[in-house]
Design a protein around this nucleic acid. Sequence first.
DNA 1: CTCAATTTTAGAATTGGTTCAATTTTTTGC
DNA 2: GCAAAAAATTGAACCAATTCTAAAATTGAG
Lengths: 204, 204
Amino acid sequence: MSGLRARQKADRHRRIIEAAAELFREAGYEGAKIEAIAAQAEVSVGTIYNYYQNKGDILGAIVSLEVNEVLNAGQGVVAKPPANVGDALDTLIGIYIEHSLHYLSKEMWRQAMAISTQLPDSPFGQAYTALDRSLTEQIRALIARLQALGLVRQDIDGAALGELIFNNMNMMFIEFVKRDEARISELRAAIRRQNRILVAAIAV
Amino acid sequence: MSGLRARQKADRHRRIIEAAAELFREAGYEGAKIEAIAAQAEVSVGTIYNYYQNKGDILGAIVSLEVNEVLNAGQGVVAKPPANVGDALDTLIGIYIEHSLHYLSKEMWRQAMAISTQLPDSPFGQAYTALDRSLTEQIRALIARLQALGLVRQDIDGAALGELIFNNMNMMFIEFVKRDEARISELRAAIRRQNRILVAAIAV
DNA sequence: CTCAATTTTAGAATTGGTTCAATTTTTTGC
DNA sequence: GCAAAAAATTGAACCAATTCTAAAATTGAG
């Protein structure tokens, strides 16, 4: 039985993540030295590298937690969407954006995004791509739901539309985290304005 | 008069860029050590840092060359666009994409994109954002042109539409450079499919 | 309880980007 | 031309991530 060992392992994982999350927030990604994270987590530097391939993967684990929460929250909207295409999209996207800075600072997002394009084949790079895909799928699911409800035209290419909406939102979010002074409300308004064009095209 | 000094300066800039471009292509961004670039350019390491704030800025200078070429090539399409909204967009985007791997490898693009989100306030970060904006403006200009030609509805929000098209294309391009095996033809086809939805909505 | 296997640890070594103080080169006022 | 000032160059030193090594600790099977 590997009961105790597994529990200790999980515990070390948790301690490392918690220490890193705290230090990333306090000192920024670059400012949080591995030695400091190790000290805070009460493990050695070597142990951290035993659990994660590199510093980026630690951040990756934190990002995954955040995005999975967002995906869960999104479920609700897909299940019971507002009875209006524009509002439905705005509500789902709103959930994504409003949750986005819960655990992660803009600086952490910037680092995470950078690492995911820099090392697309690293564990984190692949995980990040998978998360993006899940978000795209959720938007597609919403569109399919709206089609089923008769709110969106049947002849719309749902797959392509889902990608289009996600890609635009994601790019806007990237620009948002690149500017510290950018406000969430402005971001949402800009995306609404862009989506208005699509809504006009697809609503029955 | 600052004749000699200015000439030497320009010459060293050129040598550094040429050396870096060659080594980035051969050994990849990470693989190209600053010492090697310095040796190849026949300057010292310190001199490189006198000319560029950091390694990323060297890559940035190369990216700017490439993107400016693309912008120039795009001018032609905006001036005389194909007499069909879908074809016009496809032609402009085609120019962007087909030129994109001329000087830069996918790996170089990945690094450049990563740096631009990681350090949005560095010289390169700001330059990259400006380049993105220029591309967006060019797409907007094309739409305005098509509106003037009576091919696009007058009541379309051209600014928002330009952003939407650029953001989607850019995100698709990011995913494209993240996968070494992805082909240009597939990328173009996927974007065409997405834009079809928009074209249906905006064409007169 | 004991022992072999596995994991963790501490810390030294490595690596490569970046910084810096000293030196050299270029310019400028005379 | 010639020195003093300004600018540029140099390469050694620095720093932090990552790797490596040998010793110590922990585990679980018997």
